[in-house]
Simulated scan of single mutants.
Amino acid sequence: MGQRNSGAGKDLRSDEDAYRDAFDLFLAGTDQKTRTHAYLCQVIDRLPTRRLFLDVGPGEGTMTRGIAPRFERTVCIEPNRSMRHALADTCPDARVLAEPVLQADPGVTADLALLSHVLYYVPRPQWMATVLRIMEWIVPGGLLLVLLEHPDSTCIRMVEHFTGSRFDLSELADELASAPPALIGGVRLETVPARYRTMERDEAVTVAGFHLSVPSTVSGGGAPPARETLDDYVRRHFRDRDGGCTIGNDQHVLHIQRRWPMVCGPEAK
C-alpha cells in the first residue's frame, strides 16, 4: 500500500508526519466532520444571540472555520504553538490566546463555547475544573458543547481493549449535578452517529493506530501494539459484509447551559 499507510505499529506521538498521514486517512473515510457540522449548525440556529463564539482547543481550526462566520466574533484558546500558526491561516479574523484553559483569561463572554475532542488530552481529575472554568465565560442562557467519541463506539472499545483508557462524558454529566448552581442551568447528553469506512484493510489498520495514539499521549503509555496484532483486531472486529472495514465513530455531545440569573423583586411576579 506504500509508505503513506505505515502508521500502525509506529509511535505516532513522536512521528508528526505519520500522525498527519493517519489523520488525513481518517478524515477522508469518515462522515464525522459532515455530521458534526450539520449538528452544530442546528444548535447554533436555536441560540438567542450569536455575538461571540469561543473555541477551546481548536487545533488547526478546521471546525472553527465552518462555525465562525455564524457569529460576530470568534475567540480561540490554543496552547500548542504549531497549531496556532496553522490557525492563523485558517481563521485570520479570530483572536487567539496561547495560555492553557486553567490559566487563560479571555475577558469575554460567549454565546457558544466548544470543547471538541480536547478532553482526551486533559487528565481525568481535571475534567470538572476545565469545564467549570469555561462556564465562567458563557453568557446566561449560553451553551458549552463538549464532544468526545461515544464510549460504546467500536473505535473506543478498541482503545479500551489495547490501552485500558475509557473516556465517558456521562460520568462528567453526573459530576456536574454537584457544580455551583450559579453556573449550571441544565445538562443534556446526545449522540451524533458517525463512521469511518474503507475498502482497504491496510488503511483501516493505520487509522486504528491513529486512534490508539491519543490515550497513549495522555497516559504516557507504552509502545503501540505491533502492526500484526492490530491487523488481526481490525480483521476480527471491523470487517463488514462487503469486504471493507467499518469503524464506528459515534460522538457524545454534552450540552451544558449557563444558568439564567435569579430574578428578585417585582420583576419576579
Rank of each mutant, 00 (worst) to 15 (best):
Q257E: 15
H255Y: 03
M1F: 03
L97R: 00
Q251R: 09
G248E: 04
N5F: 06
W137M: 08
V263M: 13
L52A: 01
R239N: 04
L143P: 08
T74D: 05
M63K: 06
H37S: 02
R13T: 04
A113S: 13
R84F: 03
E228S: 12
I138W: 14
W260N: 10
E160M: 08
R35E: 08
E160L: 02
L147F: 13
C245T: 08
M83T: 10
G244M: 13
D242P: 07
A182K: 01
L114K: 09
R20W: 08
P180H: 00
F238Y: 10
K10T: 13
Y233S: 07
C76T: 09
Y19K: 00
A173G: 02
A38P: 01
V263W: 11
D250M: 06
A179E: 08
G142W: 13
D240Q: 11
P266N: 05
D168R: 02
E203S: 12
T49Q: 07
R188L: 11
V187N: 08
T217Y: 12
A38V: 04
D93C: 05
R124M: 02
A208I: 09
I138L: 12
G221E: 14
P151H: 14
K10E: 15
E16D: 06
D24F: 04
A182I: 01
D21C: 08
N80F: 09
R84G: 00
M63T: 12
G57D: 12
P261W: 02
R188H: 11
R166V: 07
L102R: 00
D168F: 08
R227N: 06
R20E: 14
L145Y: 04
R51W: 10
G2F: 06
G185F: 07
V108S: 10
R188F: 08
G186W: 13
I44Q: 09
A208P: 12
Q32T: 08
D168V: 11
A110H: 13
G142E: 15
R95D: 09
A113K: 14
A38L: 10
L148K: 00
V207K: 05
I247M: 15
A18E: 06
Q42V: 14
D174A: 12
S219I: 01
G243K: 05
S219A: 09
V234M: 08
H37D: 12
T229F: 04
R197E: 11
P79K: 00
F238I: 06
L254C: 11
E136V: 02
F26H: 13
S6D: 15
S170D: 15
F53M: 02
L183E: 04
V108F: 11
D89V: 09
R133M: 00
N249W: 02
P266G: 04
V159L: 05
F162C: 06
P180G: 00
D93Q: 14
G29Y: 07
Q126H: 10
T163D: 15
L27W: 05
L54P: 07
D152E: 06
C91W: 04
L183Y: 06
D240V: 09
I184V: 15
A204F: 10
F26N: 14
T90Q: 04
T62R: 07
T49M: 03
P92M: 12
P58R: 00
S216F: 02
D93P: 04
L147P: 00
G244H: 14
G265W: 15
G244C: 15
H37K: 00
P151N: 07
L145G: 03
T90P: 01
E16P: 00
H150W: 02
L169R: 03
K10F: 10
V159Y: 09
E203K: 05
